[in-house]
Design a protein around this nucleic acid. Sequence first.
RNA 1: GCGGGCGUGAUGGAACUGGUAGACAUACCGGACUUAAAAUCCGGAGGCUCUAACGGGCCGUGCGGGUUCGAGUCCCGCCGCCCGCACCA
Length: 858
Amino acid sequence: MDRYNAREAEPKWQAAWEEAALFAAQRDPARPKYYVLEMFPYPSGRIHMGHVRNYTMGDMIARYKRARGFNVLHPMGWDAFGLPAENAAIERGVNPADWTYANIAEMRAQLRLMGFSLDWSREFATCDPAYYGQQQALFLDFLEAGFVYRKASVVNWDPVDMTVLANEQVIDGKGWRSGAPVERRELTQWFYRISDMAETLLSALDGLEAWPEKVRLMQANWIGKSRGLQFSFPTRNAPAGFEEILMYTTRPDTFLGATFAAISADHPLARALAKDRADVAAFCAACRRVATSEEALEKAEKVGLDTGITVVNPFLPNQPLPVYIANFVLMEYGSGAIYGCPAHDQRDLDFARKYGLPVHRVFLPADAPEGAGEEYLSQEEAAFVPPKTEPVRYVRPLAGDAHMTGQTAIDAAIARAEAEGVGQGATQFRLRDWGAGRQRFWGAPIPVVHCPVCGIVPEKRENLPIRLPEDPSFDRPGNALDWHPSWKYTTCPDCGADAVRETDTMDTFVDSSWYFARFTAPRAETPTQAEDAAYWMNVDQYIGGIEHAILHLLYSRFFARAMIATGHLPKTAAEPFDALFTQGMVTHETYSTKDARGRDVWHGPDSIIRNEAGARLEDGTPVTIGPSIKMSKSKRNVVDPTDIVDQFGADTARWFVMSDSPPDRDVEWTASGAEAAWKHLQRVWRLAQEALAAGPGVPEDAAPLHRATHRAIADVTEAIEGFAFNKAVAALYTLTNAVAKSRAPGSVRVAAMKVMAQLMQPMTPHLAEELWSVLGGAGFVTDADWPVLDESLLVDSSVTLPIQINGKRRADITVPADAGKDAVEQAVLADATVQKWLDGAAPRKLIVVPGRIVNVVV
RNA sequence: GCGGGCGUGAUGGAACUGGUAGACAUACCGGACUUAAAAUCCGGAGGCUCUAACGGGCCGUGCGGGUUCGAGUCCCGCCGCCCGCACCA
């Protein structure tokens, strides 16, 4: 009997689908649409197993929905701007565009081998001028509508590479590439006004019911809403212009526990003082030397400098508070100034003890005994920070009773402060505006011109796209657009004077913030096309990695709203992704040996001989087997999907990554697992051949196979709908076993195998086509309707009920499925095992759950 | 520190709103076929224990308690692991 030959069948069916243009989506208002999208890849050069898993999930949904009669849009493109292309240019002297497009060609070919049902006619790369030109048009509309603006801000600056660094690119205070100490610089930069939408972006999260709770929480935390009191304290001894300091607190109930105030080193008052006082200047400079990364901040000791200035708390006029400049106060949050309440904040307490400041208690645990120690903390005590919802006993209440919860006290404190004109309730967000300019070459140029006469002037729309030059050079650090001999020199679109282009390019997150909308009309002369956007939006199912839970998804939600406001999307697209699924990673064991100096040397799976006893290199050197972790080049625990396709075919890889592990968890790639998947597909193929060759068989055996087939239809359908692909695979194994055991007539087995082909089509489409074809199915199985479930076949005529005695299973009983409670009770009481346990007595209790279980209490 | 999630055989995992724990698979063991191996097919299997056998018994979902006729599932208290966020005032 012939084996199933994936190497021949897969290209054959891919070509046939292509020929029939099965996956080219056409707008068709008569049919319900379904838009399924996987996060598009960065063209790094090769696809990896993570891609295979991600796109197989999307393909399963796309193929399943198509079979259910939906008009499916399932596009693919390339998130093609970014630093790796520039690094390749610097290291190897290649042109970033050439490098990128070569990678795209390579990866496109690899993706096509997988047989995904993608509409390749909609493909684009974000580095295509046709794409980023429309992005520039969007930018101009956003600028006009006020969604984009310029402001000065403090950034991490690498003085060697001459570029701004993201916090993630600062390692131990040094630039990740240059190793130079990072400076904090104030630069004028482009920003998206996302913070104005903080409230909307937060409250709309509630409506995203088909998003993982985890992602919604992460976004909510990132937006970081807090309710508190904003107020000013009058100053003494402060320079002119600083008669008061604006502050913010979320715990105004601790107002009377304030014993000091602190401002950021970047606070205007600190800067003013630094001009005249060397000690202040030196201290502030030292604070700034610490990079803004969280890691660096956490390690830094909390230090402060007494300015000699004091502020007066209007509720404690006789206790002026010293004002410190402190390294832990952030200018970016609130107003850059705080008061310290050491008794109820550990950080403030550490600071107070270090500088010998008083520690005044505001409240005690509700059940604390009255008496000594009520007003001041002893030296050993930690700060008392109970949840706001917990009732406590106030010894220094600003307003309200002695006994109340923190929240009640906060509300009362705000009310009193407002009534006395001392401050007002205010909401703060952690979310800051999105700095969207990068001093890099390989990004979409920001389409504005700096004119010495007119200032910042938007480029004329008819001049878009503003293309990147095709001949950049990377022989010196910094932004190649800046060094280009001619590119930036232009004339002012308004007055015609000599002017220079903006050389900042857009953050690559901009590119990915609207590509899903562009896919609905990828060749339109405007960013989107109204009918297409109205028909295809929203994305019904979005699938990608959890690593994009915050930035990409938040920026996309912002962009969708800004695009609605500027007329590029229908109002219904404010939340562009109806459902989100975050898939787990593909992991693999790691293999290491030690070199002469005792350092780890990593080995790839294909250089290892692995058996039960362990692992060794081909020359016999024993190898240490490490835990299964995400496939990565540095640990070399990578399996190339193309190798698997060569060896077993795409269907095997697809089947394997859907098996065993739930899609939101990690799946461990193993050689034996891949082989087992391949064997299973071969087995299915063999069963089809056997079914075709089978004779009349045993007619009585037709019914069980018929039932097993419909059980599989029910289970696979439910599993796919519920994103439980591992259970869909399990249900198909069960059906396979049923066919293998069946002695039903050949025609019945052929019918079962045709259903098998239909149910396997979303996972292993090539094998499914081959089966469908030899079994005599009409047309493509890819184009066939989903099999129709006959629910009556799911019900058995009799059921076996377990019998528990005192909650322990002791026996079982088979009764007609429609047997009434009385009939079941009688049958149970007649059962030999039950009679043995009852020993002649009547049961104390008899619980019958129809169709489920019986419990006898003796 | 804050927030979230998870602990089930050798392994990945399954178990609907409390109702036969371990589906399905991997690895493993035994058998058939074969000169042999591979492939394939058939069978076994949570642990302990009693029995010559057929069949029983006890224990068992991280640990300890609770609710219930009945708990992997619900409640309380611990332990461990993973992930995200964090000088956020």
